[in-house]
Structures are given as C-alpha cells and as structure tokens.
C-alpha cells in the first residue's frame, strides 16, 4: 500500500475504532444518503424584493430598480457617471445580448487594472439580502473580486426567500454545481485594525445591484 493509501485507511480506521464499530453496512449507508435535513428556517414575513433591498443596503451595498432588461445599460451608465469612473468595463458574456453604447467592454477575465465589472447574478437570497453568483465562461469569477466597482444585474423573479431555496436553484442546473458559487452580501470590508470597519479591503469597494422587474 502506498503511503497515501495508508494514511487514508489509518484515519478511517482510527475514526471507526474511536466509535467502537467497523465500517457501516450498506443499509445504514443508504439511510444516511437518503437523509434530507429540514433545519429551522428563520421566519420571514416581508415581500422578497423589499427584504433583499433592505438587507443588502444595510451593509453599504446600493441598489437601483429598472422595469426591463433593456433598461440595464442606461442604469449602468448612470452609476458609472455618478461615481466618475472611466468609460470601460469587464462585462460577463451572460449580458452579451445587451449593447452598452459609450462603454468600452470586453468579456475576458478582469485584469489587475480593471476598474468596473458588470455581472449577471444567478439568484438573490432575501434572508440575508445577498447575491448568488455562479462562475462559468459567461461570468468569470475575477469580475466579482478584482475591480473597485462591481455592478450586478439581478432579476426580481430570481430572488428566493431562504438559502435552502437557493441551493435548489444550484441542484436544478443541468451542468451541476458551478466551480465557484459566490454569495456576496455587500462591499469587501475589514475590521482588523482596532475593530474599525473599513470598506474595500481586498474585493470591490462598492457593489451596486440593478434589480430588473
């Protein structure tokens, strides 16, 4: 047996001997595999979009709401102008159907000098007011973390109540789990110097959500 296989067996055996039993039999294993936990979910009585906005903004995130997807480029431009950002952005290919006039865009990963990224969220979770982003060729993960400004497009209908419902969205994907699933709850922050909260530690300094619908 190789050293690696040895270590694996040794640890599993040590676990079993601590539990005073041998390997579990197939019946018990099947039972464990069939286990579907239903843990307590914190009660919510608020409309989902309203709760999402309230919670997301409570952590220094900002939001805007537009009627349809066609309004997204104008909302992005309004944000860019308001913040005085350069007229360029990394845009996830998931938003390829939209034209961004006046904006120099690309669909590649974000480089070290990227100033703004625009991404499509897979879902919103109203419970904590967080975005759920799925990495993939149409939504590179560097877009979520490298630029100073991150603008995220979220369909109002994609906002779910609890985490558990967001996991159902992941489980329903034909391509399975994304390589990276990012639950994002606002701008990057730190409190590592004297417990003083400071935004923009390593990730985006600002996160702006455009809710569609």
């Amino acid at each position: 047996m190789t050293a690696a296989a040895n270590a694996r067996e040794a640890i599993l055996n040590s676990v079993r001997s601590a539990l005073r039993r041998g390997p579990l039999d197939d019946t018990r294993r099947a039972e464990l595999d069939a286990r579907r936990p239903r843990h307590t979910r914190p009660a919510q009585d608020e409309e989902l979009v309203a709760r999402f906005i309230r919670k997301f903004e409570s952590r220094a995130g900002t939001t805007a709401r537009v009627a349809s997807r066609a309004d997204v480029p104008a909302a992005v431009e309004a944000y860019r102008v308001e913040k005085g950002l350069p007229a360029r952005a990394a845009v996830g290919a998931a938003l390829k159907d939209l034209a961004f006039p006046g904006l120099e865009i690309h669909h590649e990963p974000a480089g070290i000098s990227e100033t703004m990224a625009v991404s499509q969220a897979l879902a919103g979770i109203a419970e904590p007011g967080s975005l759920m982003m799925a990495s993939g060729p149409a939504s590179p993960i560097t877009h979520n973390f490298v630029p100073d400004d991150h603008v995220v497009v979220l369909d109002a209908g994609a906002i779910v109540g609890h985490f558990e419902e967001a996991w159902e969205v992941l489980r329903a994907r034909p391509e399975g789990m994304p390589r990276a699933t990012n639950i994002i709850s606002g701008p990057s922050r730190t409190a590592d110097v004297e417990q003083t909260i400071q935004l923009g530690a390593h990730g985006p300094r600002r996160v702006h959500v455009i809710i569609v619908g």
């Binding site: 919670k55 952590r59 590649e108 990963p109 904590p128 967080s130 990495s135 993939g136 060729p137 590179p140 993960i141 560097t142 789990m177 994304p178 390589r179 990276a180 699933t181 990012n182 639950i183 994002i184 709850s185 606002g186 701008p187 990057s188 922050r189 990730g203």
Partner: peptide, 20 residues
C-alpha cells in the same frame, strides 16, 4: 448577520472557464 463573502468551491477550473 452574515459575513460579506460565503464561497463554495467545487473542483478546479472547468474546460470552458476563463479563470480559476
């Protein structure tokens, strides 16, 4: 209530991924 980032990582970069 929540930390800013909760990240779920599953395996390495996929064939058509641009980063990771």
């Amino acid at each position: 209530e929540t930390e800013t980032y909760t990240t779920i990582s599953t395996g390495p970069r996929r064939a058509d991924d641009l980063d990771g």
